[in-house]
Simulated assay, not measured.
Amino acid sequence: MRHPDDGRREVALLIETSKTFGRGVLEGVARYTRTCGNWTILTDERGLDDSLPPWLKRWQGHGILLRTSRPDVLNAARRLKTPAVFLGETLADAMPTLKSDDQAIIDHLASHLLDRGFKRFAYVGLEGKEWSNRRRDFLIKRLAAESLPCELFEFKPRQGRYDTLPRQQDRLVRWLRTLTPPVAIAACYDVMGLRVLNACRLAGIAVPEQAAVIGVDDDVLLCELANPPLTSVAHDLERIGFEAAALLQNLMNGAKQPRRPIQIVPRGVTTRQSTDVLAIDDELVAQAVQIIRRQACEGIQVQDVARQLRCSRVTLNRRFSTIFSRTVKQEILRLQIDRCRQLLQETDFTLQRIAGLAGFRHPEYMSVVFRRETGRTPGQYRRATKSNG
């Protein structure tokens, strides 16, 4: 029996509570319901591979937020004819989909590794997984633009299940030993990142000195359990949940579903020990990078870097540009703009305060540089990237 139409919507949350991703998404849904949604929530403890709950077939609620790894569950949810939003990493035909932006994930990941001077790269994925293949292809394309190759390894399925972990780990160890250090290894997600770190230990490969390893998901527990702790790209999980809830509300109000998946950019890279290294042969440039990273947002100038290194600006810029194809000033500004982006997205600080924290003397100059580098004013960027509400 359908509940009385008092304006309150009954929504089923079929999102896993067993993983960091699902719990982060649920935080965003909770924020939406507190601020915007007149919802009654129906949920239960779930895993990503669980079937639909039996009560759902008789349920006469108003909307569903669904996250699952099973095609049969996705198809069964479609047949219910209830407004629904899918939050999976696959692309769901005929159901509105909201997901993390894989290309933006790889942009963050690749930039993090390229900024450390790596010239050799590898990717470890899961064969047959659509999301893993997308990330692999985006990484290959990004590196090709830099004329850099990428070695590939994939865990292979056998009879519908992944091969036994010890056997797969042995294959991974043998493959890692074929790579020439120093090499940067991108894992398709954090669980695979831990497997890569374990395989590096078994292969006698020092991390991060010989191989830097980065994952995706920024599952803090897994990343901190790793030895050494795993660097990872962090999704904006709360925003994914908030925007999915807002989309579902619109669908329940009769709006047309979007034609394309809605993609949410990640928060960025959480740097840990597994990539805390510089793969730069030129010691002068390596020292310059360390100085710039520490002091870019303190207002450091090119002459300050040269003075600390006891070399001329001309020499510093020539050797820096040879490795990074940009000047020292451009590198300082890049880090300052990255800091501005972070503060605009994560805080409500005034432009004057953001300018000071990013190393700019005047907010007006910061705004000019920000627009030149990003194509948007700070205000436009903040409105585009922060969740509504």
Score class of each variant (00 low, 15 high):
Pro4Trp: 10
Gly7Arg: 01
Gly7Tyr: 03
Arg8Ser: 09
Leu13Arg: 00
Ser18Met: 07
Lys19Glu: 15
Thr35Arg: 11
Thr43Tyr: 09
Pro53Gln: 03
Pro54Gly: 02
Gly61Phe: 09
Gly63Cys: 08
Leu65Met: 01
Arg67Gln: 13
Arg70Met: 07
Val73Arg: 01
Ala77Asn: 00
Ala77Thr: 01
Leu80Asp: 02
Val85Ser: 00
Gly88Val: 00
Asp101Val: 03
Asp107Ala: 06
Asp107Arg: 02
Ala122Arg: 04
Val124Ile: 13
Val124Ser: 10
Glu127Gln: 09
Phe138Cys: 03
Ile140Met: 08
Ser147Asn: 14
Pro149Glu: 09
Phe153Ser: 04
Gln168Phe: 11
Arg177Tyr: 07
Ala184Trp: 13
Arg195Asp: 11
Cys200Ser: 14
Cys200Phe: 14
Ala203Val: 04
Gln210Tyr: 14
Ala226Thr: 12
Asn227Pro: 04
Asn227Phe: 09
Pro229Glu: 11
Thr231Cys: 15
Asp236Ser: 10
Leu248Asp: 05
Pro266Asn: 08
Thr275Tyr: 15
Asp276Pro: 05
Ile280Ser: 01
Val289Pro: 12
Gln290Ser: 14
Ile291Tyr: 14
Arg293Ser: 06
Asp304His: 04
Leu309Val: 14
Cys311Ser: 06
Thr322Ser: 09
Ser325Leu: 11
Gln330Lys: 07
Ile332Phe: 12
Leu343Glu: 11
Glu364Gln: 12
Ser367Gly: 12
Val368Arg: 13
Ala384Thr: 05
Ser387Glu: 09
